[in-house]
């Protein structure tokens, strides 16, 4: 049997909670083997529910999920043993030592004892020195590392990071990004949810946007940035214009701020921005300006626009 190209195949997945809240409304999604996939969405969009269903924590109401070809219900052992999960909430066995709680996770996932691997995981996460400390004695950031260590203890092929850097200090965030890259190099598929857009921008190969339980879009990050990533030049004029002078026609220009500002949009990725020509034309037509400002639409804006457009 050849390995399926998709690490995870989700078809028509829906979830309605007992209180009637529809958290997922027929989601179809394929996660490719070996990619870093970022799932973006506002709070309550369905990110955590989606992860919880795949990992077996929440029962689906409808649809199917396959993990490396294994159905998550019929073949739950095979499916779940491939998955490592780092949930959003800091939940730890407070009274245990760091090493005991990490070894426990490995056993739970049916892997035989391997002290060398546990040591490697703990060292990679700078936890080795703290291995005999009780978990409750650690700082919040360190506890987060313990949860990651637990998820990695059983050598998962697929790793879910649910809001991995929420409330995490800069150092840990950097370490975590580094770790995620290393894991990807070793062939692990990574799915992370976040509402920090910069995280997705920095890390992801592909981005999915979820809102109100529906997958709004799935796209390669680079293409998404290119398609939707526009740059704008704002030219603040000395005296307002009523209309765009005919000499400037044909350029992607708009008047804003009651004619005080001329906004020029251009493709951030293009070789030629057309800005020198525009400025020259302004000078030739006697249009004086006080100030210039350029800005790039971030993934955040793209995301906000998308969510707003489909709300």
């Amino acid at each position: 049997m050849h390995a399926p190209a998709s690490a995870i195949e989700i078809r028509g997945l829906s979830k309605t909670y007992p209180d009637g809240f529809q958290a997922l409304k027929g989601v179809d999604l394929d996660i490719r083997s070996g990619e870093i996939f970022a799932l973006l969405g506002p709070n309550g969009a369905g990110k955590t529910t989606l992860i919880s269903v795949v990992c077996g924590i929440v029962n689906p109401s409808g649809g199917t999920v396959r993990v490396s070809g294994h159905d998550i219900i019929r073949d739950f052992r095979a499916a779940r043993s491939l998955i490592g999960l780092v949930p959003q909430e800091l939940t730890v066995e407070s009274f245990e030592s760091v090493i005991a709680t990490v070894k426990f996770s490995r056993g739970l996932f049916g892997k035989k004892r391997d002290d060398a691997h546990i040591e490697k995981v703990l060292r990679d996460l700078s936890l080795w020195e703290k291995r005999d400390n009780r978990v409750m004695e650690l700082s919040g950031g360190m506890k987060r590392r313990v949860m990651i260590a637990k998820a990695l203890s059983h050598e998962p092929k697929i790793l879910f990071l649910d809001e991995p850097t929420a409330g995490v200090d800069v150092e840990l965030r950097r370490d975590m990004w580094e770790m995620v890259r290393r894991l990807r190099e070793s062939g692990v598929t990574i799915i992370l949810t976040t509402h920090y857009i910069e995280e997705a921008e920095e890390m992801a190969d592909r981005i999915g946007v979820i809102n109100h339980g529906e997958l709004v879009l799935v796209e390669e990050k680079n293409r998404l940035m290119k398609q939707l990533g526009r740059k704008e030049l704002s030219v603040h004029l000395q005296s307002p214009l009523d209309t765009i002078p005919t000499a400037l026609a044909g350029r992607p220009l708009e008047l804003a701020d009651g004619g005080h500002t001329l906004v020029y949009s251009f493709d951030a990725q293009a070789e030629e921005s057309g800005i020198p020509e525009l400025l020259k034309a302004l000078g030739e037509n006697g249009i004086d300006f006080r100030d210039l400002r350029t800005r790039e639409s971030s993934l955040e804006e793209i995301f906000v626009n998308l969510v707003r457009a489909r709300a």
């Binding site: 990992c55 052992r77 043993s81 998955i83 939940t91 730890v92 066995e93 739970l108 049916g110």
Partner: peptide, 17 residues
């Protein structure tokens, strides 16, 4: 205890019956 502390997630997501 695991239910109370939330660590039950691990039991539920583990390949155990």
């Amino acid at each position: 205890m695991p239910k109370y502390s939330g660590t039950i997630y691990e039991i539920l997501s583990a390949p155990i019956s």
